[in-house]
Structure formats: C-alpha cells, structure tokens
Design a protein around this nucleic acid. Structure first.
Lengths: 234, 234
DNA sequence: GTAATAATATGTACCTTTTACACATTAAAG
DNA sequence: CTTTAATGTGTAAAAGGTACATATTATTAC
C-alpha cells in the first residue's frame, strides 16, 4: 500500500456497503524543485490503466493513525529520502468522479526542495523531474492540483521567505532573481529586484564570491537563520 | 445522521478493522453574518458529552456520492434554509486526536450571509449567532478552524468583492466601512476608505438615500451585477 | 600583459499609492 | 430657526514601485 496511492477496485468494493466510511483519504504532494534555471515538479508514471502514459503526483492514502501533515512528510520521506523539507497544505480536492476506482478525497500539499543538494533515489522509482512549462496533462485531477499549488506558491513567494528552500545554502542575487522569475513567470529588473529584496532583510552577506565562472563573480548570500522555516501551519 | 456530524463510538468500532477506510470525512462551515455592527458566527450547542456546554460549528459527514462543495452547500441548506450563499474552502484539519470518538478529518468552509435578509429557523435548532469577540473556546478544534477562517476572510476581503454577501442589497458607504472595520479589526479613515473603494469600481450608485434616520442620510449603493459571485473555486 | 568578454554593483527621477488631516453641507428633531 | 449628528469632499506629504545607464571586475583569448 505504501508503494502507491492508487486504490485497487476490489478494496473499494469490500467496504462499499458501509455508508459513511467508504471514502478514502489520500495526500498528494506537489514537489517543486529548481534546476537548470527552470522550476520543476517531481512526477511518477501512473500505474493505472485509465491513465496509461500519463504522469501523476506523489501520493498515498492517509493511515488511520497519522496526522495529515505527517502523511505528507511520510510520502516525501518514502519517495525521495528527504525529511528536511518545506511543506504547506494547499487545498482538499474531493469531487466524486476524481478517482476512477472509487471515492477518494485528497489533501494537496506543496513542498520546496533543493534538487542539487538532496540526491534522490530517482532511478529505481520511476520518479522524474518535469519542467513546469512542459506539463500539459496529468493523471486524475493532478493538473488542476498542480495549477492551484503553483498559484499559491506565486502568491506567497514575495511575502514569505520560503523560496530559499529551493536554493542551495549559498547563492548569488542573480540566482535568486532567476528563481523568482521562473516561479512568477515574469522578467524582473535587476536594480529594482535588489532594492526590494534588501528591504526585506532576509539575507546574510557571506563575504564570499561565486567561483568557477568565466566572468565577474557575484557575492554569495544565505538566508538568515531566523527565516529558515520548514513548516507552515494552518 | 444528517442531524449531526458527530460520530457514535459504536459506528467507529464497527469498521476499525479495515485498514484504510476507517477515516470519516466531514465538512464544517464557518457561517459568518453581520448584524448590530458586529461580525458574528453561527454556532450550535455541542451534543457530545466531552464538550458539554461548548458550542461548535455546523458540520456533517460527507456522503459517499457527494462532492465536498456540495456537502457544504447541503449543510448550509439543511441548517439555515439558505441556498444562495457564498462559500469558500479554507483548509483541511486532520489531526488524529481532533475528534474524541474516532478518526474524522474535516474540510472547513466559510460562508458569508446576510443575517437580516435571510430569516433562519434558528429556534428549533439550537442555532445562535455569536459575536466573534466573545468566543473563547469551542468544541473540537473549532476555535482553530474559526481563527483560520477569519484570517482567510481578512486576507481576501480587500482584494475581492465578497463582502457584499454580508450586507443587504442596498447599503450606505458608512455601513460598508463599519463592516470592513469589524472584519479587519481596525478603524479606517472615512475619506481614504471611500477613495479606495471608489477606485475598485465595485459599486452601483442607486440614486437613493437612507431613510428613517435622525440625521443627514447617506446615499445608497449596491454591488454591480458582475461582482455578485457566490461561488469560489480552487 | 593587454584587450575583449560577460557579467556584477549601484542611484536617480518619475509616477502611483497610501496616509494624515478639516470644513462645509444636509435632513430631522425640538 | 437652531441644534444635532451625521454625510461628502480635496490636498499635501510620505512611501513604495517603475524605468533606466554607467562604471567595475574577474576571466579568457590573443
């Protein structure tokens, strides 16, 4: 059961005579990463016949004895090996027809991880990073979940210092700006961007420079300790 | 079952041997109203022994064949007789210990209704309007749900024309300002408030005046037709 | 070692939005 | 017709956002 959040039809039927307990609850994680100057999301090939060839988000059923938040942490840990991630609940999706095998409502979370730093065990898992621009269709209602999560991330990213979860510990202002541009889908003016960031006072100047570039290196920064929040409560 | 969203312990135990289907799903509605210059919320006396004397939000279990949104509409309709209301999903609350009788996760919605216009059948129902300032403690985790919903309403109310769901069809700018002040918990400057509202262009000047006042009456406005949205999608 | 390259770092003028604040007007009541 | 209790309105200052150009620096190629 932990290998997939998909329900087998037999399991649904076994309990369908019970009136109020034949709704299954799952958690789906929109795992955002940033690499190669593009915002990406971690997807798995759907193993459901109905969705052959399509990818889906990572999810699993919620266990009777675990909190919703814990379930999303567990899924991330099981699938990626990571346990030090930013996670935030987005929305509950519960239309009757959303799962072909039966009634499953799902609570969507998004998470932000630093692809480079955390080496995932992707290969044996059929997990792959997909650029957001290239995703047209996903299994279930996962495209809608992805869109909603991205919108939520966009709304939040200028207000709260969560973006640093997508970056390595040390980064330049250019890298930070490029990441903002990927998330927001707009180009930003460098001088205005730096002004705006410096007003927020999120960054620690490390007095170090980029290395291994074929041009003038930029200063390196990290996020100040007090802004390294990983968890977001309701 | 439709009379309450509370679970009887026997029902929980009957299905507890099933691994993934003994999570019940409920919907709880934070029903906001505005009357007597105060923001109010509709509560019912808890019929659970554990919460004797406490009030709780209106909720019910989600039926296997109904969408989450439909469930929240149904609850509102059953409890208040209203079917023309603004509803928006807020958050899923799913800690293991949140319901004393078993595992129940709940999806919270808030709704905005015009108390004066819609005469509810409150009496036979043990339903009562409570001023937000006076609520200290509620059954279950409903205080937390209420706080989260209010915060969400506050974030949204200056951006989207949803506030008019709390007012009668015709209202003065003073009434509108007082309502904003109740929701946001701050005092607003009259001239600046009017400027801000007029920029948004949400209002239709009705060329009518208030009546039955012992002072100079104000102009009456209504929200423009195109902003009379009732439903809010994910 | 000098020039070319490709980036970093920085400031100012303009415009828009937000804030603070005061006085003339009006309908009703006495 | 005076008092009351509210409505309706504008302007100046501050803060925040936008548009925009030049000097500097580490590296690479010659």
């Amino acid at each position: 059961m932990s290998k997939s959040h998909l329900l087998k039809t037999a399991e649904i039927e076994k309990i369908s005579h019970l009136d109020y307990f034949n709704i299954a609850v799952s958690v789906d994680c929109v795992i955002f990463g940033y690499d190669d100057k593009e915002l990406k999301v971690l997807l798995i090939k759907s193993d459901l016949e109905e969705f052959e060839g399509l990818y889906s988000l990572l999810g699993d059923l919620v266990r009777p004895d675990e909190d919703l938040d814990s379930a999303s942490y567990r899924i991330l840990k099981e699938r990626t090996g990571l346990d030090d991630v930013y996670l935030e609940q987005v929305h509950a999706f519960g239309e009757t027809g959303r799962h072909p095998s039966g009634r499953v409502i799902t609570i969507a979370y998004y998470s932000l991880i630093d692809i480079k730093n955390h080496k995932l065990q992707l290969s044996h898992n059929e997990l792959h990073w997909h650029s957001l621009g290239e995703i047209r269709k996903l299994a279930f209602d996962h495209k809608k979940i992805l869109d909603t999560s991205l919108r939520r991330l966009q709304e939040k990213v200028m207000e709260d210092p969560i973006i640093f979860n997508l970056l390595p510990e040390k980064f330049s202002l250019r890298e930070l700006q490029e990441l903002y541009e990927s998330i927001l889908g707009v180009e930003l003016d460098r001088r205005n961007f730096r002004k705006k960031i410096s007003v927020k006072d999120w960054l620690q100047d490390l007095n170090e420079m980029e290395t291994n570039l074929s041009h003038r290196p930029g200063k390196l920064y990290s996020v100040k300790k007090q802004y390294q929040r990983k968890i977001q409560q309701a």
